[in-house]
């Protein structure tokens, strides 16, 4: 297995703020690696360091065999970076933007037109070819952005919250594109705060306040969760939640719509019955059931650990 990205104790300070705190990770070739975390957790900063746009305060990063501190320019023709904010030119048309990118990435002259045509077809932008990029919808822009950063066929793709501004339909479609590219051998690092997207990644890193608090495949992370998950349905979820949070055996209770997910310490024998009894004592009605952990639970648990430490 070839490693495409390897960092060791990657750290970045902005003044007193530690945006990224000793992150060490490995991304294998041909996989989608997800960065999961809330806004401001250091996802974008990490990506920018890996692209050579920010200099790490500490630690090292090796991307595609190149030390980003030593020769960031050597890296630039081999990677694609889809920024969080739409960064193509809004006053240029779709085709003009794509032409610009082929020229900037020195795509051979004879290949420019065929590649642009292929991208237009692949990302269903043929009808939009002459439209100004600034007048397109969020989903169309995301497709254009992806088309633009993959014109030069990069080995490695960085995508910073690629779907945060698009509707669910476009998100599904977008991930189809990503899986196609992975099949062709491209490696990707994607940041997201959507659990369903994170679950699609081959491997995940959960970042909280710049610290990598958990990593592994989504399945592994869910299976290894050091807690039992009890799903609770009740008419009085808020009161139930307050009550459960007071119990020492309960690590945390998260509300998911009208349901609650209670994370119970693993030493409790029958967590469902235990919680039921506790609620009955306070004459609260609820139906409880033990469920397998989902990624949300993993996320809650991982980010909670940090707060307990502090």
């Amino acid at each position: 297995m070839t490693i495409v990205i390897e960092t060791r104790d990657l750290t970045r300070h902005f003044g007193d703020l530690v945006a990224v705190d000793h992150v060490s990770m490995q991304v294998p070739k041909g996989s989608i690696y997800g960065f999961l975390g809330p806004n401001g957790c250091g996802k974008s900063t990490t990506i920018r360091m890996l692209c050579g746009l920010l200099i790490p305060t500490e630690g090292s990063a090796n991307v595609l065999g190149i030390d980003v501190l030593e020769d960031p320019e050597a890296l630039k023709s081999k990677i694609g970076y889809m920024t969080q904010r739409f960064s193509l030119y809004e006053d240029l048309t779709v085709v003009e933007n794509l032409q610009f990118m082929t020229e900037i990435y020195s795509v051979p002259r004879s290949e420019r037109a065929p590649r642009i045509k292929a991208q237009l077809e692949r990302f269903s932008l043929v009808d939009r070819a002459k439209q100004l990029a600034g007048t397109m919808s969020g989903g169309q822009r995301q497709r254009l952005a992806l088309a633009a950063v993959t014109l030069h066929r990069p080995e490695l793709l960085f995508l910073d919250e690629p779907t945060s501004a698009v509707d669910p339909e476009s998100r599904r479609e977008f991930w189809e594109f990503l899986f196609d590219m992975v099949d062709q051998g491209t490696t990707m690092l994607v940041t997201t705060h959507f659990m369903d997207e994170a679950e699609r990644c081959h491997a995940l890193a959960i970042l909280d306040q710049g610290v990598l608090v958990a990593d592994g495949s989504p399945k592994r992370l869910m299976a290894d969760l050091p807690a039992s998950v009890v799903e609770i349905e009740s008419d009085t979820v808020r009161v139930v939640r307050e009550t459960l949070l007071d119990l020492a055996e309960v690590i945390d209770v998260a509300q998911l719509g009208s349901r609650l997910h209670a994370l119970v310490r693993p030493n409790v024998q029958d967590p469902s019955a235990f919680l039921d009894a506790s609620l009955r004592q306070r004459s609260l009605q609820a139906s409880l059931k033990l469920v397998p952990a989902n990624l949300e639970d993993v996320f809650v648990m991982a980010t909670l650990g940090r707060e307990v430490d502090r």
Partner: peptide, 14 residues
Amino acid sequence: ERGNLELLITTPVQ
């Protein structure tokens, strides 16, 4: 200001 620079400096342009 328009956010184009972040993309531009990630390309091989000198």
